[in-house]
Design a protein around this nucleic acid. Sequence first.
DNA 1: CTGCGTTACGGTTTGCGTAACGATC
DNA 2: GATCGTTACGCAAACCGTAACGCAG
Lengths: 107, 107
Amino acid sequence: MDLPHLRYFLAVVDRGSIKAAAASAGVTEPSVSQGIRALEHELRTLLFRRIGRGMVPTSAGHALVGPARRLLRDIASAGGSVTDTDSRLRGQLTIQGRPRFSLGCHE
Amino acid sequence: MDLPHLRYFLAVVDRGSIKAAAASAGVTEPSVSQGIRALEHELRTLLFRRIGRGMVPTSAGHALVGPARRLLRDIASAGGSVTDTDSRLRGQLTIQGRPRFSLGCHE
DNA sequence: CTGCGTTACGGTTTGCGTAACGATC
DNA sequence: GATCGTTACGCAAACCGTAACGCAG
């Protein structure tokens, strides 16, 4: 599963059209269309119903919205956590030891 | 950020070595090594301290462990949510309308 | 000398953009 | 006719595996 594709998916859900989603994501329309297709193929489920020129989420599409939002939020959280930790001034003393003799104390 | 790379990262943290992590992930050692390098380059932070032949997580590495685990858990949750919704039998009537006349009611 | 991590290199996959087509209003 | 979504095609980037190197024990 590709993260950009998941971003495209949420953009389409929010904007309601591929054109607007592509513009907001900074890519072209075929990229979004193919990305949605890749997601649908990977999940083996139809995510949108093509009605006229609009994109309406199916029940599976609706089910994916929540987890997808949480996932992208966690991505930012993951990236931020390391930079926060790094910016905060702190020291660390790393001491690595290896057992020279095993005494039957295996984990 | 690539999901497989994040998986490699957690595998290295858990196993403590690249060789074991590669074996558990079903790939070869250079893939894991390059994946970790890619993560470190993208986050512009050193994730591991190379001590002898062991891999010890830095403070930034430790900070990434929690969010990374939650992220991979959410991935599975996202994939499962759509299949669960799909397997459950349910109907849906989609009615899509477009405003024919704008009356100053814009969101 | 053995084992582990890294680097170099080639192959393959695939995501993206440009261009052209079909469908809807 | 205008606009939106899709398909076709070519390119580029990136991931992975094989092979070779450096280094610690």
